[in-house]
Design a binder for these strands. Structure first.
Lengths: 347, 347
DNA sequence: ATGAAAGCGCTAACAA
DNA sequence: TTGTTAGCGCTTTCAT
């Protein structure tokens, strides 16, 4: 094989079966009442020629690609796999497929990738990010195709947003520590370019206040949402605030970094220090002690995003409203949280 | 906005600019020497109409999509992100984009997804898997498009394969332990449906033999390439072979499971037991102690796969030979390996 | 029940 | 330098 044979076309099939291309198209689509004889001839030709319809041609003609574009910031971010998988399943089940595109974290590239997907004429767009800037919202609002934004705080949102109850989730995490008797609790934030970072900080403070702990006296340390940020936080925290017995982290990766950093310094978890994360990525169950965390319903988000898109497509008259759906986060108690050390407990 | 406006076409632009569609096409492609005036008119119209060419139409006409399909078994497998990212970068740089598709692990679905990509008329296919069955090789050999298979032992290969030197990598891992004084070493295998599992076992045995350790006396425990398999192996290993001081694992996830399992049993790593993994996934650096491992050059694989595809496309006359490229694996010493405990060292 | 023909939006000869 | 035209492979009226 030196020259690769061109794929056979519907015309090849029609010729071989002695029918028109229209008939082939109908038979394959299961439309009308073709004679059994015709069906046989067509199928035989299809088989013989190994015919597979070009979805490029089909898309051009039907003005639909039966494809959704899923653009995400970073495929290496362990938050996404579960979301992608669920979206893929849901799409597939409805006769769509998903094409993935990674946007990196730069905003100008984001719009670039959105355009690329639109050029592909995908039928809808799912934007899964941790930060969506004004220009992107703008673009989405005027785009010639429907979209859903996932996993983002809806500041400036112009489309449907599906996200987690970040405030409530963090409250849940903080309350868990408080219930265990902790009174000196710190928070390691994410980068504030992530739209959820301030909301989660808010949740932390709210839970403290509700329990009668003055939030302003609780240390808040800047992290970056990465392993390194958590690791560094461990050093700062234990040097500057040695009385802290519990830490609520912006996300799991930060918590895992903090866990490693604490161990390096010689504090044992959870005996000396309790740590709780957020997201419930796969690695949370892999570290030891296994990380207690509040889980985002990642699969659910992906599934719902696809379903929303499909409903938007099915009712083209319905306006694409800027709605917000917040999924609750779920406490997953594992091994990094325990009772506050007796020594540091008041009374 | 109740009805979404249809995207404007090249004809709209031509009309508004008062030129023919051919001219618009040329101006946009930068072909010929259009008059500055014409260029201006066209660009103005493009701007005004917010025109973006349909890549669907372009693909149909040019019989090229400038897209590569990347089929991988499981997007949740932490082995892939780095590979995908590198492939994406390389493709982008050459004017291609990558569409991703997850095949799950079932072989019949794999062929299904290969067909789907072919229907999309992608220009080439990258199959990144840990197992490629005969039917897939068959399909690839007769497919109307070029392909590269990545990260697989080339048993039955019909196309170019880019993979790691699995045998050499495992030898490297084992030699590292031997150099640290370990003499009683075990191996936890992967599932043997992964094509690399037996080759890695082979490398383990070869290194033992080369160092004068009888491979037949070294425990080999069945794993599954998952966390659970490693965890279970810890229990079996320490119950049945308590004299073992070092373990070479099929992959990092297994090693991380083994690490967690060992700790649960009360063996301390690396003081009592040294553990080495394989792959170098992100989480290897996150666990503590951080996992020593041999790294696969995942990014390099992705980059090379794309480059090979492009060269195949540029020289369409060149036969798609079944070649094999093996990248060396790299030892990454971290914290889970150390000197063999003195007690168990002979002499 | 089937065929003829038009056309989706684009590019590439070929003419002018 | 630009326009005219044909056609990529498919679906879908409209006839028959």
């Amino acid at each position: 094989m030196t020259e690769r044979a061109a794929p056979s076309t519907i015309r090849d099939v029609a010729n071989r079966a002695g029918v028109s291309t229209a008939t082939v198209s109908r038979v394959l689509a299961g439309i009308g009442n073709p004679k059994a004889e015709t069906v046989g001839a067509v199928m035989a030709a299809v088989e013989a020629l190994d015919y597979r319809p070009s979805s490029v041609a089909r898309s051009l003609r039907m003005k639909r690609t039966f494809t959704f574009g899923l653009v995400l910031t970073d495929i290496a971010n362990p938050f996404f796999p579960e979301l992608v998988k669920a979206a893929d399943d849901a799409a597939r089940q409805a006769g769509y497929s998903i094409v993935l595109s990674t946007s990196a974290y730069e905003e100008h590239r984001a719009v670039h990738y959105l355009n690329l997907m639109a050029d592909r004429r995908v039928d809808g767009l799912i934007v899964a990010s941790s930060q969506v800037a004004a220009t992107s919202w703008e673009w989405l609002a005027h785009a010639p195709l429907p979209s859903v934004v996932v996993n983002v705080e809806p500041v400036g949102a112009t489309t449907a947003v599906i996200t987690s109850d970040n405030e409530g989730g963090m409250r849940l995490a903080t309350e868990h520590l408080i219930a265990l008797g902790h009174r000196r609790i710190a928070h390691v934030t994410g980068s504030f370019t992530f739209s959820a970072a301030s909301v989660r900080l808010q949740g932390f403070r709210a839970a403290c206040a509700a329990a009668g702990l003055d939030p302003d006296t609780m240390p808040v340390i800047d992290g970056d949402g990465q392993f390194g940020g958590g690791e560094a936080a461990a050093r700062r925290l234990l040097a500057e605030f040695p009385d802290i017995t519990g830490v609520v982290c912006y996300n799991d990766i930060t918590a895992i970094g903090l866990l490693a950093g604490s161990r390096a310094i010689g504090r044992s978890v959870p005996a000396d220090l309790s740590i709780i994360g957020c997201d419930d990525i796969a690695a949370a169950a892999w570290v030891s002690p296994a990380l207690t965390t509040v889980a985002q319903q990642k699969g659910e988000m992906g599934r719902l995003a696809v379903e929303h898109l499909i409903s938007l497509l099915d009712n083209p008259d319905q306006e694409q409203a800027a709605s917000v759906l917040r999924l609750p986060m779920l406490l997953r108690i594992r091994e990094t949280t325990g009772p506050a050390p007796a020594a540091s407990r008041p009374r």
